[in-house]
Design a protein around this nucleic acid. Structure first.
Length: 578
RNA sequence: GCGGGAAUAGCUCAGCGGUAGAGCGCCAGCCUUCCAAGCUGGGGGUCGCGGGUUCGAAUCCCGUUUCCCGCUCCA
């Protein structure tokens, strides 16, 4: 299959979206009302395609963990599922870091179109002009004079300039390296280190004049009230900045009818936390033993700043997450195991070849919970809109014990695990046991992104065939499993075909649609199935009535073979497993 | 949030101040023995939405929504 693959860059996303609409895979949500940004609905074929991918994950991950293969410890992989609520106690999201991490206020420069994190705007507050005779002194020589200087608080609350940096120290060093960030500034010298209020002092030279300035965070409340009195970074121009605007990425709602601020709750931005909050319950009730995983699939919600690229960045989406708990000493081995096996799984559902890559994260792009861990990898697919780059399908992260530790801290409930098989051996030869907070490997996949990747991968333009395009789904993923057609709507053909159709629906109808259609020419019906991605069409023709055979038309090759009517179920059963 | 482009039938698009169109698809009938064949007929659009200009707006102007591209953002 891989050798006939169509490069992602040659596929048009517009064409894929049009096909998705035309064939009932994906519609824009609330379309008759003009649509709603960042939300998409699945049509009949899309719903079944999505279910097939979801079922494959559930079966291959939860019910037959890792397809039956053994983990790095040599034992079978143990896995149990949960299904937790979308709305959790608000403290869950404080513990997870989402309340803090999802609330970066941003400031826009209306003139230059630049956007800044408000807490990264460092103000430069001039507190003292250095007398001319002292202007050539170094920062160190000024230190004694500065000891008696006016308190920085007495200077104006409005900065003279603004510099973009995460904190004062970095602002100072970047100013020293590149004074052009402030108009007319010739030279900047740091004077002292960052103080308690997050600010530091610097000596700034403008031509012949020199000033001592305090560099530090600006008053965000004041910036919100009077943005016109704050200078923009780089240009120094006033009146062009917007007030800080909160980009709250969590969907807020209210529990109860009163809807006061005390009732605020959030729709989960990830399913993972529902696993961590149930960790103790699962350990206490399920006789699981380390190492083991808890899996969950379900909807999650993120108020994305810019939903874009079809369903790739939707505000409502479905996740398939595993939290795999293990002893800290085994985390590295399990991390590698999961990373490699998840990659193979995506290949098994049809994303083969150079469009699928495994990318290990560089240290500086790791999330807050993963810095101390064995690593983070992304399994990425080259979508037409990311080509030649890639978009994330699944992240595999070693989250250390970050989440359990935080939930233990915020809830006050002990979440450590007593491992009876570890620890020193006592006189009887029995291990004394070891109590520890497990480490976690998290393979977290996006179901909607997976569906989109399947669609993009399957989409195969072919000017030689009537439909101009066909969808080359793996039979296991295809929403329509087979079609049964009488070649013509005459003689006994429709009746024979209808019987075969009923038989196949009974055997395979739970896995996907089995089509029946007697209208129109056979070529037209084949072409429709090409566009819908149906892998096999069984046709009853004149010969069928003589010798009880049918033709099987293969979607990918357009070739036909003739098999016995009674051989069709076995033929399909064999192919649909692939 | 910003800048640019777009929105007319299920799809692809034409129409650009004077009665809303074509091709394909879809549905029905006829005909048809293997790849969107042919014939006949049919359904389907308040021209994204809301204002304004005009005797008259799909068409011009303003606003708005959605989609696409580029920024920006992305635990």
């Amino acid at each position: 299959m891989a050798e006939r693959e169509t490069p992602a860059a040659t596929k048009s996303m517009d064409d894929i979206m049009a096909l998705c609409k035309r064939r009932g895979f994906i519609y824009q949500a609330s379309e008759i009302y003009g649509g709603i940004n960042g939300f998409w609905d699945y049509g009949p074929l899309g719903a079944q395609l999505k279910k097939n991918l979801r079922d494959a994950w559930w079966n291959d991950v939860v019910m037959v963990p890792c397809g039956g293969r053994r983990g790095p410890t040599g034992e079978p992989v143990r896995m149990v599922p949960v299904d937790s609520c979308i709305i959790q106690h608000p403290r869950v999201w404080e513990a997870s870091g989402h309340v803090e991490g999802f609330n970066d206020p941003m400031v826009d420069d209306r003139e230059t179109k630049a956007r800044y994190r408000a807490d990264h705007l460092m103000g430069v507050f001039v507190v003292w002009e250095v007398p001319k005779h002292d202007a050539q002194k170094t920062g160190a020589e000024l230190m004694s004079a500065l000891a008696t200087l006016v308190e920085p608080q007495s200077s104006s609350p409005y900065p003279e300039f603004m510099v973009v940096a995460p904190h004062a120290a970095e602002a100072l060093s970047s100013l020293a390296a590149d004074p052009k960030q402030i108009p007319r500034l010739k030279r900047a010298q740091p004077i002292n280190a960052v103080r308690g209020d997050g600010a530091a002092l610097a000596l700034l030279h403008f031509g012949e004049r020199a000033f001592v300035a305090r560099v530090g965070p600006v008053d965000l409340a004041l910036l919100g009230r009077e943005p016109e009195r704050f200078p923009a970074p780089v240009t120094g121009k006033k009146g062009v900045l917007t007030p800080p605007r909160a980009f709250n990425l969590m969907f807020k709602t209210y529990v109860g009818a009163t809807a006061t601020e005390d009732d605020v709750a959030y729709l989960r931005p990830e399913t993972a936390q529902g696993i961590f909050t149930n960790f103790k319950n699962v350990v206490d009730t399920m006789r699981v033993k380390m190492p083991f995983g808890i899996a969950q699939m379900g909807k999650a919600f993120r108020n994305e700043v810019t939903p874009r690229n079809f369903t790739f960045r939707s505000r409502e989406f479905e996740q398939m997450e595993i939290e795999f708990f293990c002893h800290p000493s085994e985390a590295r081995a399990w991390y590698g195991f999961w990373r490699d096996w998840r990659m193979q799984w995506w290949e098994s559902v049809g994303l083969k070849g150079e469009n699928l890559v495994l990318r290990e994260h560089a240290t500086d792009e790791l999330a807050h919970y993963a810095r101390e861990g064995a690593g983070t990898s992304d399994i990425e697919y080259r979508f037409p809109f990311t080509a030649p780059g890639y978009g994330e399908l699944e992240g595999v992260a070693h989250r250390t014990d970050f989440d359990l530790r935080r939930h233990q801290e915020y809830s006050g409930v002990k979440l450590d695990y007593f491992d009876a098989e570890r620890g020193e051996r006592g006189p009887s030869g029995q291990p004394r046991g070891e109590r520890y907070l497990p480490h976690v490997i998290e393979p977290s996949a996006g179901l909607d992104r997976g569906v989109l990747a399947l669609l993009c991968e399957a989409f195969t333009p072919d000017p030689a065939r009537a439909s101009g395009v066909f969808l080359r789904f793996r039979p296991r993923m295809a929403p329509i499993k087979a079609a049964v057609y009488p070649l013509v709507n005459r003689e006994a053909m429709p009746e024979v075909a209808a019987r075969l159709h009923a038989d196949l629906v009974g055997r395979f109808g739970r896995d996907g649609f089995i089509e029946f259609d007697a209208k129109q020419t056979i070529g037209k019906r084949y072409a429709r199935m090409d566009e819908a991605g149906c892998p096999f069409c069984f046709t009853v023709d004149g010969q069928s009535l003589q010798d009880m055979t049918v033709t099987v038309r293969d979607r990918d090759t357009q070739q036909q073979e003739r098999i016995g009517l009674d051989a069709v179920p076995a033929f399909l059963a064999d192919r649909l497993a692939r």
